[in-house]
Simulated assay, not measured.
Amino acid sequence: MIHPDALTGLVLAGGQGRRMGGCDKGLAPFGGRPLVSHAVAPLVGRVAAVLISANRHPEAYAEWADRVVADVEPGYRGPLMGLYSGLRAATTEWAVVVPCDSPALPDDLIARLSAGLGEADIAVAHDGERLQPVVMLLRRSLVDDLGRALAAGERRVERWIARHDWRAVDMSDCAEAFANLNTLDDKRRLEARRRETLRR
């Protein structure tokens, strides 16, 4: 297990939310609180610091983070830029990354990623059907390579991961935990599922 003191939690919330009408997705209400508060939950108490990568409303996100980090380059250049900016701001050896729009991530997420890492540099969650590339544990020292990849035009998280020694971590037993909210319909569906679960 990686000690919490060696870990930074990074929540990616810097997107434009275009499929949700341009809203700041991390601040959209879900189950009575902002989505970002659910994303932060599996990190709190398990990392030395929580960073939120956000390009809007930093004062609102500050309630849920030790630090809010904007992209180092403007223009909403995607999750790789958010990852790069967060890794530059982190001071620990390792970082664990989650998206702001997955409100049901398991409490033992960090423990499972850590256990599945082995001797690799990156551990990525796999839900049994597909890789979840923005749910990962990685060495902060990869930040320089990431900067070079971005400068060369790379924008896909999966392709950048593939440059390194990485492991997929089987989380098929909780595949539903990786459902994310890309549209308002997704949000309504997940909220209904959450209410049903709470009633049981």
Rank of each mutant, 00 (worst) to 15 (best):
A70N: 01
N182T: 02
E73V: 12
L137H: 09
A39F: 04
L80P: 03
Q132W: 08
A60T: 03
Q132Y: 02
R188Y: 06
Y61F: 15
G118R: 11
A90W: 01
D170K: 00
R46A: 15
M81F: 04
D101N: 09
Q132P: 00
S102H: 10
L109H: 07
S102M: 15
A123R: 04
P74V: 03
V44D: 10
L146V: 12
L184S: 10
A28N: 00
A13W: 05
R112I: 08
S102C: 15
W166V: 08
G26Q: 12
L51N: 05
V124E: 10
P74I: 07
H57T: 01
I122V: 15
R163E: 14
Y61V: 03
R194G: 00
A48Y: 03
A49K: 12
G78V: 11
P4E: 06
W166M: 11
L184E: 13
L138W: 01
G45P: 10
V68S: 13
S37H: 02
L7T: 05
T8K: 06
A28L: 14
A39H: 04
G82F: 07
A65Y: 02
V40C: 13
A13M: 12
V143C: 09
H57Q: 15
E176K: 06
R67Q: 14
R189E: 15
A151Y: 07
P103A: 07
A41Q: 11
K25E: 07
Q16I: 06
V169L: 12
L10A: 06
G32C: 05
W166P: 09
D5G: 09
A90D: 01
R200V: 02
W160A: 13
R112D: 00
L105P: 09
S102Y: 08
P4G: 11
R200G: 13
A115Q: 10
Q16S: 14
Q16P: 02
A54R: 05
R193K: 12
G22F: 13
A13S: 15
R159S: 15
A175C: 00
G128K: 02
D101K: 07
N182G: 07
E119P: 08
L80E: 04
G32A: 06
V124G: 10
G82A: 14
V97T: 04
S141C: 11
T91Q: 11
T183D: 09
E129A: 08
R167T: 05
P103M: 05
L146Q: 00
E59V: 05
D5I: 05
H57K: 05
L184H: 12
T197G: 01
A120N: 13
P99N: 08
V135Y: 06
R46K: 15
G9P: 13
L80V: 02
R188M: 09
V69H: 08
Y76I: 01
L35C: 11
L105H: 10
N55T: 11
E196I: 01
R155Y: 01
G32K: 07
L83A: 13
R88N: 10
V36L: 12
Y76S: 11
L146F: 01
G14Q: 03
E129V: 04
D24I: 14
D173P: 00
L117Y: 09
L109A: 09
L10E: 08
L150P: 04
L109W: 06
G82T: 06
I161A: 11
